[in-house]
């Protein structure tokens, strides 16, 4: 077991270092601006007094490294400073939206993960048949479509023409859980369509890889019934690639959510990010980017750790 713990600890350490480097990139990219943030916010016509006041308020009179450390220590305690545009606390503005985004992603994942794994395994078992080829074309098409294309098609047919679901996912606090699921169904479905295609293809590739290995052939040759080959021989080794596929696609979900949120006017963090970028509200942009990057890295890390933990060769060392 010591080996595994060592490997996991090493991966976690690597993840932390990458996160730190990314926080440095996110912070110092803004420093690249000629002049400084204050200049960028107030524009060319700013008076020197205004500039000085804003600089003082934002702590721009201190050296960049100090400001970075201050920002980082704030970020660890979820305090990202105040928005330049509205003056409100960034953490408060984003906090609730982040929860909404997580809800949407979790909703989509709950539908997509079981479907795509079952379908992926099925397609792998039926490989090179006509169904496999149809599935290949269908998933390629779905992957290649931009999220807004799928989103608008769903809006047109399921919301406008038939009126089965609301086109705009507006949320309020006093909604029941069922109502919430109903109102966010279309954005979730859009995400499901994109992610299922990705996951199916990856699951199919992983399973086919596995079924080609000699020990599966051996099991077949000695006359093991097909279901037993899958359950006893293939599955224990398949967990690692499947966990990998799921975690990678969850990471994809977290970022794919940006476009979907804009299409459905969903009050999530992706829309906050897009708004902040067009208003050049740097504290919000930095905070959102850091949150997205952290989630992305965490999920990738989970994929790595999961595949280490489920690897039978590592769990039962010789």
């Amino acid at each position: 077991m010591g080996d595994i713990l060592g490997l996991v600890a090493k991966r976690l350490g690597m993840g932390l270092i990458i996160l730190l480097v990314i926080s440095i990139i996110i912070f110092f990219m803004v420093e690249l601006l000629p002049g400084d943030i204050a200049q960028a916010v107030l524009g060319q016509g700013a008076t020197p007094e205004n500039l000085a006041a804003l600089r003082k308020e934002m702590g721009l009179d201190q050296p960049a490294v100090l400001r970075y450390l201050h920002w980082l220590s704030g970020a660890v305690t979820l305090d990202f400073g105040n928005s330049i545009v509205t003056g409100a606390s960034v953490a408060q503005t984003i906090g609730e939206r982040f929860a909404n985004t997580l809800f949407l992603a979790a909703y989509a994942a709950a539908i997509a993960v079981p479907i795509s794994i079952v379908l992926g395994v099925l397609v792998a078992l039926l490989r090179n048949s006509i169904f496999d080829r149809v599935a290949n074309v269908a998933t390629l098409t779905s992957i290649s479509s931009p999220e807004f294309f799928l989103g608008y098609i769903l809006i047109l047919y399921l919301a406008v023409k038939t009126g089965m679901f609301p086109a705009i996912a507006s949320l309020s606090n006093d909604m029941s859980f069922g109502d919430l699921l109903y109102r966010t169904f279309l954005p979730a479905l859009t995400l499901v369509l994109v992610v299922t295609a990705h996951m199916m293809r990856m699951t199919r590739a992983a399973i086919i890889n596995l079924l080609a290995s000699p020990y599966i052939e051996m099991a077949r040759l000695k006359g093991t019934p097909p279901w037993k080959v899958i359950v006893k021989h293939a599955l224990p080794n398949a967990w690692a690639p499947i966990i990998n596929v799921v975690a990678l696609n969850l990471a994809y979900l977290i970022t794919g959510v940006v476009l979907v949120e804009v299409v459905f006017v969903y009050p999530g963090i992706g829309q906050a990010l897009v708004d902040a970028v067009s208003k050049r509200d740097f504290p919000v942009v930095q905070a959102c980017c850091l949150i997205f990057a952290a989630t992305f890295i965490l999920l990738n890390l989970a994929a790595d750790v999961g595949s280490i933990l489920t690897n039978p060769r590592l769990r039962h060392p010789k």
């Binding site: 990458i18 690249l32 960028a40 970022t255 959102c288 980017c289 990057a293």
Partner: peptide, 24 residues
């Protein structure tokens, strides 16, 4: 390249565009 690839592409693009957009 490992570091750059661990930032989601759309997010990284938005970050860079927020800086190099506008007057720049």
């Amino acid at each position: 390249s490992d570091v750059i690839m661990s930032i989601p592409s759309l997010i990284f693009a938005l970050l860079m565009l927020s800086i190099f957009g506008g007057d720049l």
